[in-house]
Design a protein around this nucleic acid. Structure first.
Length: 276
DNA sequence: TGTTTATGCCGAC
DNA sequence: TCGGCCTAAACAC
């Protein structure tokens, strides 16, 4: 599930279910290899979540104290959250658990992660090597891009690769880059220095618009299309224009990039192919 | 039955 | 830049 929109949805979910919950501990599954020590100096605590691009910060705090600490988490390829009330069994492939009690009984908040690529660690803040959130910190995101795109040979690299760089485009992943490029009508195989400045502006705009759309549609349903639900007659499956629909190429990172077939015969694509 | 693919990231060369 | 980390669904035969 998880790119920017999905991480935002997960953090909303955590906040919604945690509102009247007092937590008293957490642990991980026996099979999880994450080494982070999950003991916490609070006997009872509250939890709030924030997302920034592809990270979630779980903030632990006590009502009566200013003291707080945060787990910075990434969701890998398959991380998602669910809650088990009372003695309802926790789902298969849940690897991180937060135990609490609410006015209506026990609650276990679970990070479900089939592939176990999700990670967590204690930290003061979100990772410094990841940029601002294109949706929640849009102006900072633009500023950060303007500063860093000029560095080294970054401005000569094909934008299809640059847009996956999380120090510039925190939260943009494989389906979002496809949908962003489709909507801005820019040849994704061109480099920053080959793209007109108004088109660059448009790319940055759509780095906010596309994740926001996906967020409002309830996030991407990519391998289980049937669960797709919609808003005003639109659902994710209709919103998705090229991902799994257009032409494809294996990019420099070995990931499938889906693009508008109109770029099929462009010289920039030819050049990109030759460079792989 | 075996092979390929998947919304991500990290560390070893 | 490449393999590794993981499981499971979708495909190929």
């Amino acid at each position: 599930m998880p790119e920017l929109a999905e991480l935002a949805i997960m953090s909303d979910f955590i906040n919604r279910v945690s509102e009247k919950v007092v937590y008293f501990g957490m642990n991980k599954s026996a099979v999880s290899k994450v080494k982070t020590d999950l003991r916490i100096p609070f006997e009872h605590f509250n939890v709030k979540a924030r997302s920034r691009g592809k990270e979630i910060s779980l903030d632990f705090y006590k009502e009566d104290e200013k003291h707080s600490q945060s787990l910075i988490m990434t969701m890998g390829m398959s991380g998602n959250w669910t809650a088990a009330r009372g003695n309802f069994p926790v789902p298969q492939h849940a690897h991180f658990f937060l135990h609490g009690s609410s006015p209506i009984g026990k609650l276990t908040l679970c990070l479900v992660d089939i592939r176990r690529f999700a990670k967590w660690r204690w930290d003061k803040d979100f990772s410094k090597n990841r940029g601002p959130c294109p949706v929640k910190e849009h102006e900072d995101f633009r500023k950060n891009f303007a500063e860093k795109i000029t560095h080294k040979n970054r401005k000569e690299k094909p934008m299809v690769d640059v847009i996956m760089d999380q120090s510039l485009f925190n939260g943009i992943g494989n389906y979002l880059r496809a949908e962003i490029f489709h909507r801005v009508d820019v040849n994704p195989f061109k480099s920053f220095s080959d793209i007109e400045s108004d088109k660059i502006e448009k790319i940055l705009d759509y780095c906010r618009i596309c994740p926001q759309d996906a967020y409002e549609l309830g996030g991407g349903q990519i391998r289980d299309w049937k669960n797709s639900f919609g808003v005003d007659g639109k659902n994710f499956d209709e919103w998705r224009k090229v991902y799994y629909k257009g032409d494809k190429i294996l990019d420099r990172g070995g990931r499938t990039f889906w693009y508008d077939p109109k770029w099929e015969k462009s010289e920039h694509l030819e050049k990109y192919r030759a460079s792989l």
